[in-house]
Design a protein around this nucleic acid. Sequence first.
DNA 1: GATGAATGAGAATTCATTCAT
DNA 2: CATGAATGAATTCTCATTCAT
Lengths: 191, 191, 191, 191
Amino acid sequence: MSPRTQQQLDKIRKERKQAIMDTALETFAEHGYESTSISMIARKTDISKGLMYNYFEGKEDLLTSIMTEGIEEMFSMADPNRDGVLTKEEFEYLIDGMFELMRVKSNFYKLYFSLMMQPSVSKLFMAKMNQVIEPFLKLFVDYYTKKGAKNPMVEAVLVGALFDGIGFNYVFNPDVYPLDEVIKLVKERFV
Amino acid sequence: MSPRTQQQLDKIRKERKQAIMDTALETFAEHGYESTSISMIARKTDISKGLMYNYFEGKEDLLTSIMTEGIEEMFSMADPNRDGVLTKEEFEYLIDGMFELMRVKSNFYKLYFSLMMQPSVSKLFMAKMNQVIEPFLKLFVDYYTKKGAKNPMVEAVLVGALFDGIGFNYVFNPDVYPLDEVIKLVKERFV
Amino acid sequence: MSPRTQQQLDKIRKERKQAIMDTALETFAEHGYESTSISMIARKTDISKGLMYNYFEGKEDLLTSIMTEGIEEMFSMADPNRDGVLTKEEFEYLIDGMFELMRVKSNFYKLYFSLMMQPSVSKLFMAKMNQVIEPFLKLFVDYYTKKGAKNPMVEAVLVGALFDGIGFNYVFNPDVYPLDEVIKLVKERFV
Amino acid sequence: MSPRTQQQLDKIRKERKQAIMDTALETFAEHGYESTSISMIARKTDISKGLMYNYFEGKEDLLTSIMTEGIEEMFSMADPNRDGVLTKEEFEYLIDGMFELMRVKSNFYKLYFSLMMQPSVSKLFMAKMNQVIEPFLKLFVDYYTKKGAKNPMVEAVLVGALFDGIGFNYVFNPDVYPLDEVIKLVKERFV
DNA sequence: GATGAATGAGAATTCATTCAT
DNA sequence: CATGAATGAATTCTCATTCAT
């Protein structure tokens, strides 16, 4: 047996780190951050408690890593800044993308929503999330401005609230929520 | 010398109990249910930890009491069942009532939202809240049916999501949120 | 209404004190000393917690009072020292008396046995109980000496153990224990 | 460097667990189950409170483990079921074994007796103990039947009470109790 | 890297006792 | 005399984190 190369080690490390984060996200989403113990995550990931601390500085670091990754992923997947202008088709496409993200990353959204509710925790992520949200808001404002809305800012805020509300309702009841039809209606009414 | 009369005792009990519930609601809303300790509440209410248990069976009972009271208040304040039919004016009035409630009881809403995010806790209140929400949903469906909407149910669900989303955004940023204008727009767009 | 006389007050006081002790004995016997709370006793006796402390200095004092009373009662009821000599008939009579006492005062015996098991507590009562037991033991020794037993002391000790054992088994299973037949056999074998 | 092997871990766990159980048995026997705190046991075992919960689910589990072990040990050491029949010699041997056990495991017996006194706890062990006691009782009944006793069952019950009583007296005064002579007399009188 | 034993701070809860009324 | 609100110390238990191996 030749010893593993540095690259192999890096790969293992990266994969394991991801495995921990995946399990943790799932568990945080299911039981909440506070109610999830490090032991639980370690057991589910099939590693020892001690090893967790080799990959993350602690529980909070684990949470931050998950959230950061999720936010970045959101940012990269749904980056709207192609040319800074939104056509009708692009708006619709963006809406689809957004809700598709919720479908695929529903655990992330669950966690996100639950963290937003705890101001003491949320400050950590608020800033980051705002970096994601703001460009969208700006796009919306531009869109409604161009459309000649009386108060484009408010219009944009309303759409933002709508996305949050639908997401919020959907991720906690994915099985019964009529997401597709709701999306269709959103498009009719807000695009 | 002589012991307190029953009335005096009742008064003390009622006031203390309310004081505890007020502090607890505030603290739960600020830090979340899990992250709030009984000690914290006791300290803030300026009573001993032990006394908490004279008034509530435990942390969960305290939470339940707060939520039950809040839900009942909500129910009584915003009871829509006058004649089971919603005119345009009544719909607008109802919207105003709803958001007024959020303004006044923003801590309750914060707590409500945060609890909904924690499956472990939420089951307790889901049922109760649904009793409150369902009649509204039904009213909305009727309203949109009468208005001749293609898909009244989806329309109602969308309004529900909108209320959640606005509430959610508002209670966590009450100072900067343009609530009045958003409400106005909701009325224009959804009534 | 004329105020109650001192005698009436004394009577009330005495009766109430007895009522507390009765309830306490019952509850201690049922749940054990440690597991019985002052609140529980107060509630059952239908008085306030505070009043308990008007009658007893504390939980331990209450226990001591109960035990002292019980032991004294035992002493007075089963006092064998008529002339210091035990005939066969008297021995049998004494045995009957003893077990009759267990039947009537089974709660006291339960408590007694359970306290004896906790050396830290028992020291308090050991001394007192020994004052009760010793004369009996002496009587037994005399009896067996007169009967010409090889080792009267051991004989007496054995009878003592037998009484304890039967009592112990009986008070914890009074419904199924064949007390009468066992007593009969004890007499046959040991008188 | 390298983590401990499974064997090392097993050894540590087994030893620690046993150490805790030993201390706990001693302390329960001395102060009673209720009056013994986890802290007390941890301090005596020279480990942290928290570690207790690595080895036992809680105080009750600790008690159950101790009792189960003790009962099993009793069962295995004093198993009378060789051929289901008891000769005179075997009976005497059995008596010796029983009291030898009391001598060696006097703490277990103390705890056993004290638990039997607390109905709240006792139900847990009553069943188990009866499994141990019943075969003995049956043996005794057979023995006395064969001996032609008028009422073998009562005879057996009496012997049972005697064992309890002697044990009870002995374990709480092992230094002064004339156990050997009492045993001798028991054999003379009951074998 | 990897393990899980071990710690210690802190959580919820209980309860004997005190005391203002 | 009587009440029960109030306290505070002690109890059981949890868990993030450390560390010897």
